[in-house]
Computed example of a mutant assay.
Amino acid sequence: MTARITSALFVAQLTRRVFADGSFAAVERKGAEAAGAIFIVTRTRMGEVKLFSPAIQALAGDDGERRFMAEIIADDATLSLRWEREARFDPDFWVVEIETDAPERYLLIAED
């Protein structure tokens, strides 16, 4: 099993890559530096919002790479409710928002 980079380093690398491609990224919530769960929100130019949450263990792989599972979110109110539930479960999570039509360019998407 390969060691996983810290959450803080993953977020820093992600935001730099997005900015380098001329797109926008923002850390909306800063979590635990070493191992906080990372959630990625994407917004396309057409207004579609997707949430990429950490992949479940069965889909995570053993190569140390972070994998994400996608879900379409109806609106910002639904997203806010999700953050409230997550904070009750684990207050050390990260939220990063990126504007891109191709999130797979930046994220490893787990296949179910």
Rank of each mutant, 00 (worst) to 15 (best):
K50T: 04
A74L: 09
Q57W: 08
D76V: 08
D63C: 06
F68V: 08
E65Y: 04
T78N: 09
R43W: 03
G61C: 06
L59K: 14
F68Y: 15
A74H: 04
S53D: 05
D76R: 10
R66W: 03
R66E: 03
A70S: 13
A70D: 01
R43N: 09
R67M: 01
G64T: 02
P54Y: 08
A60E: 14
T42R: 04
K50P: 01
M69W: 01
R66M: 12
F52K: 01
A55I: 07
D62R: 09
M46S: 15
L79D: 06
Q57P: 09
L59Q: 08
F52T: 04
G47Q: 09
A77Y: 06
K50H: 13
L59E: 07
A77G: 06
E71L: 12
L51N: 05
R45M: 02
T78R: 13
I56H: 13
E48I: 10
S53T: 10
L51T: 02
T44E: 12
E71V: 09
E48M: 06
R43G: 04
A58C: 04
A60G: 04
R66L: 11
I73T: 00
R67P: 00
F68H: 11
L79N: 04
P54R: 07
I56V: 12
I72F: 12
T78A: 15
G47P: 06
A74S: 13
V49G: 00
D63G: 00
E71N: 08
A77D: 15
I73R: 10
D62G: 14
I56P: 04
V49N: 00
F52I: 01
R43V: 06
T44K: 02
D63N: 13
I72C: 02
E71T: 15
A70C: 08
E71W: 01
M46D: 13
I73A: 12
I73K: 06
A74D: 10
D63E: 06
V49I: 15
D62C: 02
D76L: 14
R67E: 02
T42Q: 11
T44Y: 04
L51I: 05
A70R: 15
D62Y: 11
D76K: 10
I73E: 09
L59N: 14
T44H: 05
I73L: 14
R67V: 07
R66T: 01
S53F: 04
M46G: 13
L51D: 07
